[in-house]
Design a protein around this nucleic acid. Structure first.
Length: 726
DNA sequence: AAGGCAAATGTTTTT
DNA sequence: CATTTGCCTT
């Protein structure tokens, strides 16, 4: 059965899987079966009694990749992998911090700050320091701080010199550290840095883990940053074996601290490492691969790799020149429609550089009645109402959590205005205490007006009451539910935004459901704490995907790791892709080129590129030349799409298609004021119509849910026959 | 203190 | 164009 592990692998893959314990660098091109090799390698080591599941540490970058690895590992080993250390950098580091919170110098129930909360703290710091926040932008300070932490640098490690910029950012960083430490919360970068320091400063602990993890395997290594690499080296020590899998040509996260150089450094730091190149591709046609190879060869400093396949050349890559973005969308839609006659819509992906491009595409797809799904966008745990509810839960768990405190002190509005809040902040800073303690002190010292004081006391009492309720509740579900109900958020949403109210309330319901079904992976700390950490670390990957066959829309970044028979890459124009911000710097253009390479290599059978002569962008019409990336692909692999003017092939090029076919308003399906019934929202009154044909939207004032705009074609409205009540 | 209106401001995304 | 932010009025 050990040899079974090799049966389905090619020679190079076998070599990587079956070599005796060693350091390995596996340069794995797109679609070359890298995750497979990783899984088989681990299984091989275990089958050879070189390793036990206990002595393996497998690290990935995203939660999605981690759960896929767990699933495939479990399948391969035919046992549960619950006890194995397979996870993301942040997930595993977090686990270590929970286990050794004392040694790490953290409070037991420390909470995790997401970027939103982090920004809140930074804004507060900038105010404290009396800096002008138009000159010293909170976002900029945030990237400065995170970049330094990602590089493993604490404020005291940074030499400010005479540069006012660095000096100021450093002051912000320093102050931010103080306030965050006081609150007992950690940001994402801190999780990694703190873990690194924990092991560095505790030789006994380090030795323990070094003795335990004999085999350390890392996926998507090109995405690791300095601190992650340092952590890996630390755990590897002198005895253990590191296997890293990566592709320098697919490094697209440089702007967020990923160090492509880590691959080069690895070969220097571990000179005995066996290097394997996986270049045989099992995904795409030869034409797609040749074109991709040609494109990426324009980059400098590559480790070098040429993808090839045993498959046929396949079709040429199609290139369509649209005259504007609407034409482009119509072309893509028409092509998808053709595809859909023989194949599934779920085979198709539309990739674009920036999220703003999705709207035109969506409109066109809706019009053509093609089901689609957009990846990315807002994630569940990042929605405002969810974050509000979580903030209450966090505050209940830890009153000193300043970000949570600020988020909900006056939400729902309860008469605690800016004046009072500023007073609390000032006091907290002066007395070096948390906002919570400061608020209490202020009430005791009687410096507030009676009204403000009462409002504030009311808030503190509310949290205290909720705390007691949570304390007395038996299950996580009851805890979450009682806090949401007690917070007053539901009433607040009901009263304010009528448009979003329904989805907000539904989301809160879903949060309660999530609490009901939540299963902690490891049993450290209280269930509520673990739930909150889960919410921060996994902001809601698993969106309930209806299993309808849908066209997939996503950015090029989120397409990494996926594959589709038919791929459209649109908006290939200078300024959009490569993006304007990247054009000035050579290094950035190369990253854009890698992004293009990633996009192209997603395609299995057919790749279609498109660009528009003019595009409406930020409200103005812009004319851009085609992307340089198109010119970098040899013409022999391309074939321009000829514009067919025949009536039934779509005719997407004709101007008349952009104009409403019938300028006279078509007959309305309902009279204004008609009573209608909706499956979900029940009964309501028709208020208005908008748009034409399949675009047509209707505004209905629902008796129970307030007024909403619905796409008529989807809303399935039925006129309520009022005569039966007469 | 809260809601409403004008002005500013626009990559990519994970944890 | 569309969304968010900040200022200004009640």
């Amino acid at each position: 059965m050990k040899t079974d592990l090799l049966a389905t692998l090619n020679e190079k893959q076998q070599q990587a899987v079956s070599s005796p314990p060693n350091h390995q660098l596996i340069l794995a091109g797109a679609g070359s079966g890298k995750t497979r090799v990783l899984i088989h390698r681990i299984s091989w080591l275990i089958a050879s009694n070189e390793a036990s599941p206990y002595s393996v540490l497998a690290v990935t970058f995203t939660n999605k990749a981690a759960s896929e690895m767990r699933a495939r590992m479990s399948e391969s080993l035919q046992t549960s992998v619950a006890q194995m250390w397979i996870g993301t950098f942040h997930g595993l580091a977090h686990r270590l911090l929970r286990m050794h919170w004392q040694d790490a110098g953290l409070p037991e129930g420390f909470q995790i700050l997401d970027s939103d909360d982090q920004l809140r703290y930074i804004k507060r710091v900038i105010k404290y320091l009396e800096l002008d926040d138009t000159r010293w932008k909170p976002k900029q300070a945030q990237s400065f701080i995170n970049a330094k932490k990602d590089a493993g640098l604490r404020p005291q490690h940074i030499e400010p010199g005479f540069d006012l910029f660095v000096k100021t950012q450093l002051r912000i960083y320093q102050e931010y550290e103080n306030i965050v430490r006081q609150a007992g919360v950690v940001d994402f970068a801190e999780i990694l840095l703190r873990t690194y320091e924990l092991l560095r400063d505790n030789p006994v602990l380090l030795q323990h883990y070094q003795q335990r993890f004999k085999y350390i395997l890392v996926d998507e290594f090109q995405d690791t940053n300095a601190i992650q690499y340092a952590w890996l080296k630390q755990l590897a020590g002198n005895e253990n074996y590191l296997t890293i899998v990566g592709d320098d040509d697919q490094s697209i996260y440089g702007w967020r601290g990923a160090k492509i150089e880590n691959i080069h450094r690895f070969t220097q730091d571990f000179p005995t490492a066996q290097v394997t190149r996986l270049e045989q591709n099992y995904r795409s046609t030869q034409n797609i691969l040749s074109a991709s190879n040609a494109l990426i060869s324009n980059n400098t400093g590559r480790l070098g790799k040429e993808l090839w396949t045993q498959d046929a050349d396949g079709e040429d890559i199609a290139v369509y020149e649209a005259f504007n973005e609407i034409d482009e969308a119509h072309f893509i839609t028409a092509e998808i429609k053709k595809w859909g006659q023989l194949h599934s819509f779920s085979d198709v992906a539309i990739l674009y550089r920036s999220n703003a491009q999705s709207r035109v595409l969506e409109e066109s797809l809706i019009q053509a009645n093609i089901p689609y799904r957009i990846y990315g966008g807002q994630r569940f745990f990042e929605r405002a109402e969810i974050k509000d509810a979580l903030a209450y839960l966090r505050l209940v768990t830890n009153g000193h959590d300043g970000a949570a405190f600020e988020r909900v002190i006056n939400w729902p509005t309860r008469g605690i205005g800016d004046a009072t809040q500023n007073l609390i902040r000032e006091h907290s800073r002066a007395a070096q205490q948390s906002l919570w303690d400061a608020a209490r002190a202020i009430i005791e010292q009687n410096i507030l007006s009676a009204r403000a004081s009462k409002a504030l006391q009311h808030f503190l009492n509310l949290i205290a009451d909720l705390r007691e309720t949570v304390w007395n509740a038996d299950t996580l579900y009851e805890q979450v539910e009682s806090v949401i109900k007690g917070s007053g958020l539901i009433e607040q949403y009901r009263a304010t935004d009528r448009d979003k109210m329904l989805s907000r309330l539904e989301n809160l319901e879903e949060l309660i459901t999530a609490a009901r079904t939540y299963q902690p992976e490891h049993d450290e700390g209280s269930l509520l704490n673990s739930f909150l950490a889960h919410a921060a670390l996994e902001a809601g990957e698993e969106q309930a995907d209806e299993h309808q066959a849908c066209v997939q829309l996503m950015t090029l970044h989120s397409a990494k790791g996926l594959e589709f028979p038919l791929v459209f890459m649109c908006g290939l124009e200078e300024g959009l892709f490569p993006h304007q911000m990247a054009i000035a710097e050579h290094k950035h253009v190369e990253e854009e080129r890698r992004l293009c390479y990633v996009g192209m290599t997603r395609a299995m059978k057919k790749l279609v590129l498109s660009y528009a002569q003019t595009r409406r962008f930020h409200g103005r019409e812009a004319m851009s030349p085609p992307s340089r990336f198109i010119k970098e692909i040899p013409e022999e692999f391309l074939s321009p799409v000829r514009i067919t003017k025949s009536k039934n092939s779509g005719g997407y090029r004709t101007v008349s298609n952009y104009l409403p076919s019938n300028p006279i308003q078509a007959a309305l399906p309902f009279q204004l004021g008609a009573r209608v019934r909706h499956e979900k929202f029940s009964d309501g009154t028709v208020l208005a119509f908008e748009g034409q044909g399949e675009h047509m939207r209707v505004q209905v004032n629902f008796d129970r849910y307030g007024s909403k705009w619905l796409v008529l074609a989807y809303a399935k409205l039925v006129e309520v026959n009022q005569s039966c009540f007469l």
